Amino acid sequence: MPSLLVVVFVLQLTIHLVNTFGASTINSLLWNIYNSLPTPTSKSASEQKELKRQFIKIRTELNATSSQDEFARWAKLRRQHDKLLEQVEKNKATLDSTKTTFDSVVSTLRWLGTNGLRMFLQFWFQKEPMFWIPKGWAPYYAEWLLSFPRAPVGSISIQAWSLACMAIILLVSDALVAIFALVVGSASATKTGKPMKVPSGEKEKATAQTEKKEL
């Protein structure tokens, strides 16, 4: 069985990742994975992709066809366009209804597996010390705060450990984002390859030498 310290840290990291990427992004990713598996909606999703592909193709041809010079071809493409549009809208309505139910179930399970589990652990282990502070390392009021609300004084409570994990994760996340932005900015500047500016004094000196050689 994994240590409770590790479980709380992983749980806080999961909550941070969910909050960073966003619930809608995660739901869309899970929805695409769900449709790629042999599920009841996988066939409808595949048909929707094919219908969209055909619709875009017909629409492109329709826009490139003159309704005056090529009326017969234009009218045929228009009928195909309207028929495909109706099929796309009908199939989309069915998938959207299923996706709404899917998002609701996934959101509930995600909350139970993250915030719900965190609340349960903090309630169930509120009297359990995560680890003990060496005696004399902190004053009594600090020991009391770190053991809040019901852990033994002189120990770290699960609430205090959760807050510490959250603070560390935020600091590391901000540091990684800053490093990434710095690397991308440096790479972009290198790729642009802006010419280095020549100081005005050096430029005048080079011009004078050139004129002297010409004389």
Rank of each mutant, 00 (worst) to 15 (best):
45 A>D: 01
35 N>T: 14
49 K>P: 02
39 T>N: 04
47 E>S: 03
46 S>W: 12
33 I>Y: 14
34 Y>Q: 05
54 Q>G: 10
53 R>H: 15
35 N>Q: 10
48 Q>M: 15
52 K>C: 10
47 E>I: 01
49 K>N: 03
31 W>C: 02
50 E>L: 14
30 L>M: 14
48 Q>P: 01
47 E>T: 07
51 L>Y: 08
36 S>Y: 06
44 S>L: 12
56 I>L: 15
51 L>T: 06
31 W>A: 00
42 S>N: 12
56 I>G: 09
45 A>H: 11
31 W>I: 05
37 L>T: 06
36 S>M: 05
39 T>H: 06
55 F>H: 12
30 L>K: 15
48 Q>K: 04
42 S>C: 10
46 S>K: 06
29 L>F: 14
55 F>W: 01
41 T>S: 04
38 P>R: 03
46 S>N: 14
51 L>I: 03
45 A>N: 09
48 Q>T: 02
38 P>M: 00
45 A>M: 01
55 F>I: 05
33 I>S: 03
42 S>L: 02
52 K>A: 07
39 T>K: 00
46 S>E: 11
34 Y>P: 00
42 S>P: 02
46 S>L: 13
43 K>V: 01
29 L>T: 15
45 A>C: 08
47 E>Y: 11
27 N>T: 12
48 Q>D: 12
48 Q>Y: 10
47 E>D: 11
56 I>P: 10
